[in-house]
């Protein structure tokens, strides 16, 4: 739990509990103001929780903060860095906290900056960097001490499509090296591409923690299925035939054909195809609608923006 000090004692987090499996890329989602950043700052040891327990890599955050700090790497959302220092200056400074010998730190910094594509501006002042370059430097400082856990807050925000793809592949590569990654993002498509498990927070409480497929199945259970049919020549007679199929509760025209709403548990795809063909329609495609991560997100939260 985290209670902010102040006259109103705002309770930012209450009842947040989740486990990130080792070696996972865990998507951490929530609407604006839900408590994502507060949670991330607690996990990164920036904020101290008012109550509760946090264990990272087996270490209690309150009792062994230094052990936690040495095992995590934080990539914050927006960081401008020290404008008058170079990327190399920054990495040398941050390396000093981990007792990395100066020569090794320099070599590692150079390797990282080269790998992240900003080696050619390593000795230029950060105030001359673009947004994308600063993002790459933020990742470099996060990886500098080779942490086993990466906490990334909106790593791809504000990037162009190439930059987003670059970061997506880099995150996969880091995960492939065994790193556990907690990824907070507004880009649900990115999360869907990268993460198997997600946690969704809303108004300071975790409303869901599970794999995306489990969450989808759980939310679909008991809900009607919609079959989207792409077809030409769907007549009123065809619609009536569809409506007569047991289990079908509604059939309505769409710009591409017809949408058929089916009662939970009913598998009527064959009957739907047959009825349409018999009614003279030309069938092109028939597809049961899947619930996207966005649907899950909107269903589980207050419906605000992610």
């Amino acid at each position: 739990m985290k209670v902010y000090r102040g006259s109103r004692g705002t309770r930012a987090l209450d009842g947040v509990s989740f486990t990130v499996p080792k070696g996972d890329i865990f998507g951490f989602l929530g609407p604006n103001g839900a408590g994502k950043t507060t949670t991330i700052r607690i996990l990164a040891t920036v904020l101290e929780p008012t109550a509760g327990t946090v264990r990272i890599a087996g270490h209690d955050l309150r009792a062994e903060p230094m052990a936690v700090k040495e095992r995590i790497g934080l990539m914050p959302d927006e960081v401008e860095f020290y404008p008058a220092l170079t990327a190399m200056d920054h990495l040398s400074y941050y390396a000093s906290f981990y007792g990395i010998p100066r020569r090794d730190a320099k070599r590692r910094a150079r390797e990282l900056l080269d790998r992240l594509g900003i080696g050619d501006v390593a000795t230029k002042k950060v105030k001359t960097y673009s947004h994308g370059m600063r993002k790459r430097l933020a990742l470099a400082q996060c990886l500098l001490h080779d942490p086993e856990i990466l906490i990334m807050d909106e790593p791809a925000s504000g990037l162009d499509p190439q930059g987003m793809r670059y970061f997506r592949e880099l995150i996969r590569s880091l995960n492939g090296q065994g790193k556990t990654i907690l990824l907070s993002s507004h880009l649900l498509y990115e999360v869907e591409q990268l993460c198997e498990h997600v946690g969704i927070i809303d108004r300071g409480r975790m409303v869901a923690v599970d794999s995306i497929s489990n969450l989808s199945a759980r939310l679909s259970a008991g809900a009607p299925t919609i079959i989207n049919v792409t077809a030409e020549g769907v007549t009123d007679a065809a619609l009536a035939a569809l409506g007569a199929i047991p289990g079908v509760s509604k059939a309505e025209l769409t710009p591409k054909g017809v949408a058929v709403t089916v009662a939970p548990g009913s598998d009527v795809s064959g009957e739907v195809s047959k009825a349409l063909v018999l009614a003279g329609a030309q069938l092109r495609e028939l597809k049961a609608e899947q619930r996207s991560l966005e649907d899950l997100f909107l269903a589980l939260t207050r419906g605000g923006s992610p």
Binding site: R41, V46, K69, E78, F81, Y82, Y94, Y98
Partner: peptide, 15 residues
């Protein structure tokens, strides 16, 4: 705090 480096500092092994 304004330039965002305070969080980076406090997440390091520094008391």
């Amino acid at each position: 705090r304004v330039q965002g480096t305070l969080d980076l500092l406090l997440s390091r092994p520094v008391g």
